[in-house]
Design a protein around this nucleic acid. Structure first.
Lengths: 141, 141
DNA sequence: CAGCATCCTACACGATACTG
DNA sequence: CAGTATCGTGTAGGATGCTG
């Protein structure tokens, strides 16, 4: 509620704008939460390569349970990021594809992924230092 | 493990590369998780404006408990995203500031925030449609 | 002022079994 | 094949109280 809404800052905020910003802010939190959850972006990135059937996704995404895949897909579909198509063949086949919205989301997410990859080493180093520092207090006993 | 590591894809992966990719992938997940948690990016964005003391942050970030602020700050500090400086004044004052790393993270995060703001309406519309569709099954009773 | 320790609740996520 | 239902666990996050 404090800072992130400044992203779309028209800067002069009348009373009504406050409400609007609050909504925007909640939405931003929503999106960050979805991006941050364990499987959503893995699914999006997989679908970015090509459309997939349910079990293709399950096989392609290492370690995901069918439960979580199902839930993740439903959430993504609800948000309009993923399109679901049921092919009425003999054994039912359901095809999942990224929507335009989903494809557009992939861009900033990839930027974040790239940042993570480039800064991985720095972060791991920082953690190592931080974690070993607690010792100092008693290690020189 | 499947797709996100392709971001840094040197594409020809010998046995050793697989390990490397797995580490990268875990790290990307880590970062996405941190970005996705409830308060981290709010803190980062607040510190992007200016350095703050603990209670300034607490007051500035609406709804955060001091517990969560404390935990979030320690996590950010551990990752080297936030710098902590203790001023040994009479009542102790601790100043928090973004590191260069933290500032660099803010960029892709802002991109994501911008995406969320621009696509907020589409997503809400999609959710409304999705949520009302469950009705159809029984609403025409 | 800054913050850790404790307790509690809600939910994310996982494993398994069952269905059309 | 493509799910839903059920159950169990870990942990994120909130409320409160204490400390230096």
């Amino acid at each position: 509620m404090t800072t992130l809404e400044r992203i779309d800052a028209p800067e002069q905020a009348p009373a009504a704008e406050v409400v609007h910003s609050a909504r925007s802010c909640r939405m931003v939190g929503d999106i960050l939460a979805r991006v941050g959850d364990k499987w959503s972006m893995l699914v999006v990135m997989t679908l970015l390569e090509d459309n997939r059937h349910f079990n293709e996704l399950k096989r392609g995404i290492d370690g995901i349970s069918q439960q979580m895949l199902s839930r993740t897909l439903r959430a993504l579909e609800r948000d309009g990021l993923v399109l679901r198509t049921v092919h009425a063949s003999v054994p039912v086949r359901v095809e999942y594809a990224l929507s335009g919205l989903g494809r557009s989301l992939a861009e900033p997410v990839k930027a974040l992924g790239a940042w993570a990859v480039t800064n991985r080493v720095s972060i791991e180093a920082s953690r190592a230092v931080y974690d070993s520092r607690g010792d100092e207090v008693w290690s020189r006993a």
